[in-house]
Amino acid sequence: MNISTKKEASALLVTVAGRMDAVTAPEFEKSILDFIAQGERNFLINLSGLEYISSAGLRSILASAKRLKEQNGKLVFSGLQGHVKEVFSISGFHGIFKIYDSDAEGLKGF
């Protein structure tokens, strides 16, 4: 898994690529929690490069979102495709998270 970040005007754009499974998910969760600790509140997670997400990945997203909610922050997604899009759909994540087609749209949403 590869995580890269870019500070945008309205939010922190986090691009995740590769695979998010039981091995790599804690890394994602930790990096988001670190950003929260640094004061970031708005996150746009771009998953266009993510090939696979397991239930552990979903859990780390959920845990991050919960923590963010306590801080009145917000977590939205963009660029979902293929397997990841399907998993979001089946698991009901598409119902609780805002999902945008592009980063530009996502950044406008904050």
Partner: peptide, 14 residues
């Protein structure tokens, strides 16, 4: 067919 539905235990009030 799809029925939607959130995962169980994640959030209260679903």
């Amino acid at each position: 067919w799809k029925t939607g539905g959130m995962v169980v235990g994640a959030m209260e009030g679903m």
